[in-house]
C-alpha cells in the first residue's frame, strides 16, 4: 500500500485514503447488519428488562406493573429485615450447598466409570445421560411418587430396612434435602455428558506412560485425570452453581415453597412476590439481588479459575 502511495499524486493519495475509509465503514455496516438480530433481541429481552428491573426496584407499583411511589432503597432494606426473605436466602444457600457438590461428585464418579473401555459401555453411558432428556416437570412427577409417604419407594425401602418412614416433602426437616436429591438426579445427565467429554479428550499417552512407570490407579486419578479435567470441572461447577440459584420448576411441582417456607428458593420467592402478590417493586429488588449474586459468583470463579485451572 505504502509503495504505491509514494508514486501516486496527492490527489490520488487522498482517494486511496477515502477508499480505505469507505471500506472500513462498509465492513462496519456489514458486521452490524449480521449482528443486528442478536443486538435487537438482546436489547429488547435482556438489557432493557435488566435496566427496567433496577428502576422498578426503587418503586412501589400498581397491579399492572407501572411505578407509582418512589421509595428509594426501601425495597432493599425491607428485604433484609423480612424474616421470609431471610429464610428464603438461607434455603437457597443450603440448596446450593447440597446440590453443587452432590452433582459434581456423583457425575464425576459416573464419568470415570463410564470412561473405561469395556464391551457394552455405550448402554451405561446412555442410561447415565438419560436424565438430561427428562424435563423438570416430568422428573418432579417421578420423584413425587418416590417421595410418596405410603406407597413411595423410598419409604418402602426404609420400612423394609426397619426404619421409620419419613415425610419427605412435608417434614420441614427433610423437604429441602428431598428437593435437593431430586435436583441432583435431574442435573446428572448434563454434567455427566460434559465430564465424559472432558475425560475422553485427555491424551491416552499420559496413562500409557504412567502404566509403564507402574503408577497405581488412584495415583493416576489424582495426578493425571483430575488436573487434566480441571477446565471441564471448573465449567461444570459454574454451570451447576448458576442453575442452583435459578431453580424453580421442581419447587413449584413438589413443595410450592413449603412446608413452612423451608423450600422457598429465591426464584420461587420472586415468582410469588411478582405474579401472585403483584408486588413488582419488592420482587424486582429480589431479582436484582439474584443478579448480583450470580454476577459475583461468575466473576469470582473466573478469577480463581484462571489461577488454579490447568489448561493445556
Amino acid at each position: 500500500m505504502k509503495d504505491t502511495a509514494v508514486i501516486l499524486s496527492d490527489e490520488k493519495q487522498i482517494d486511496v485514503f477515502k477508499a480505505v475509509k469507505k471500506q472500513k465503514l462498509v465492513r462496519f455496516l456489514k458486521g452490524m447488519l449480521f449482528l443486528m438480530p442478536s443486538i435487537v433481541l438482546f436489547s429488547l429481552f435482556l438489557f432493557y428488562p435488566l435496566g427496567r428491573t433496577i428502576y422498578l426496584s426503587f418503586f412501589l407499583t400498581d397491579g399492572s406493573g407501572d411505578p407509582t411511589v418512589f421509595v428509594g432503597w426501601e425495597n432493599y432494606l425491607n428485604l433484609f429485615t423480612s424474616p421470609i426473605f431471610l429464610k428464603s436466602l438461607r434455603a437457597t444457600f443450603l440448596f446450593v450447598l447440597y446440590t453443587v457438590p452432590g452433582t459434581i461428585l456423583v457425575s464425576l464418579f459416573l464419568a470415570i466409570l463410564a470412561n473405561e473401555k469395556l464391551k457394552g459401555i455405550g448402554i451405561f453411558r446412555t442410561m447415565y445421560a438419560s436424565t438430561m432428556g427428562i424435563s423438570v416437570a416430568a422428573a418432579s412427577v417421578f420423584w413425587m411418587f418416590l417421595f410418596h409417604p405410603t406407597i413411595g419407594w423410598l419409604n418402602q425401602i426404609l420400612q423394609a430396612l426397619g426404619f421409620n418412614s419419613i415425610g419427605w416433602l412435608t417434614d420441614p426437616q427433610w423437604a429441602l434435602l428431598a428437593v435437593s436429591i431430586s435436583t441432583i438426579w435431574m442435573n446428572l445427565g448434563f454434567t455427566f455428558l460434559i465430564m465424559l467429554g472432558g475425560l475422553q479428550s485427555i491424551d491416552r499417552y499420559l496413562y500409557e506412560s504412567a502404566d509403564i512407570d507402574g503408577a497405581s490407579y488412584f495415583y493416576q486419578l489424582r495426578r493425571i485425570t483430575l488436573p487434566m479435567l480441571s477446565p471441564t470441572l471448573f465449567f461444570v461447577i459454574t454451570v451447576t452453581f448458576i442453575n442452583a440459584f435459578q431453580t424453580f420448576g421442581q419447587i413449584d411441582m413438589l413443595t410450592r415453597g413449603g412446608p413452612q417456607n423451608e423450600t422457598q428458593l429465591i426464584v420461587y420467592s420472586i415468582y410469588q412476590e411478582a405474579f401472585m402478590n403483584y408486588q413488582f417493586g419488592p420482587a424486582s429488588a429480589q431479582a436484582i439481588f439474584l443478579f448480583i449474586v450470580i454476577l459475583l459468583l461468575t466473576l469470582i470463579q473466573f478469577k480463581l479459575g484462571e489461577r488454579k485451572v490447568h489448561y493445556q
Binding site: 442478536s38 443478579f291 450470580i294
Partner: peptide, 23 residues
C-alpha cells in the same frame, strides 16, 4: 461487542423476567 455477548451470559433470565412479562 464480543465482550458484551460474554456479559449476557451473566444475566439470569429470572432476573429480567418481570419486565419481559410486561413487554
Amino acid at each position: 461487542i464480543f465482550f458484551i455477548f460474554i456479559a449476557t451470559m451473566m444475566v439470569p433470565f429470572e432476573a429480567s423476567i418481570i419486565p419481559n412479562f410486561h413487554t
